[in-house]
Amino acid sequence: MATEKKYEFSSEVEKRFQWLLTRYPTKDAVLLPILHLVQDENKWLTPDSIEYVAKRMDLSPARVREVASFYTMFRLNQKGQYVLQVCHNISCYLRGSDGVIEHIKKRLNIKENEITPDGKFSLERVECLASCGTAPVLQVNGWDYHEELTIEKVDRIIDDLLKDKNAYLDYEKRISEGSVA
């Protein structure tokens, strides 16, 4: 059985980690920023990455897990390659988020909080994403926003992601092209 490579910071993350340590009066305060960097690199907080972070932070793995589990952005389980999170709070509801959720369920043939069999997508409901003026809104993988959704737009997003196209689109580029919203 091939042993998986254990997680370690890349040189980029290591550099950032060293810099972060100079920015706070305590080491503990670096935990949230470093977990973000690890998750970006690793897609989710695998048990070995948590163990590694714990060691580097002089904390127990249980403590790192305890803190991480408080926050909805940290993923402690593997999810789809693209996590579609649809806001279901008041403004998005008023602008049709229920229809968006139903459509994605049908199109991907999954229920909420499930992963498609090919591991490509998961679907979740989330609370207000601070984009209520351009509701309804969904985000891909925690921060790539898509706003003023229509069923056609949702289909286009899924079509693109199926081909791994336009995933993690450069925000600045999207804004300068006027294609946001």
Partner: peptide
């Protein structure tokens, strides 16, 4: 960066979160 929790907008929750 925060990490997704409305309660971290409350000022003492925010401080706890800032402290890690």
């Amino acid at each position: 960066p925060g990490a997704g929790a409305y309660i971290c907008g409350e000022e003492t929750g925010l401080i706890e979160s800032l402290e890690g």
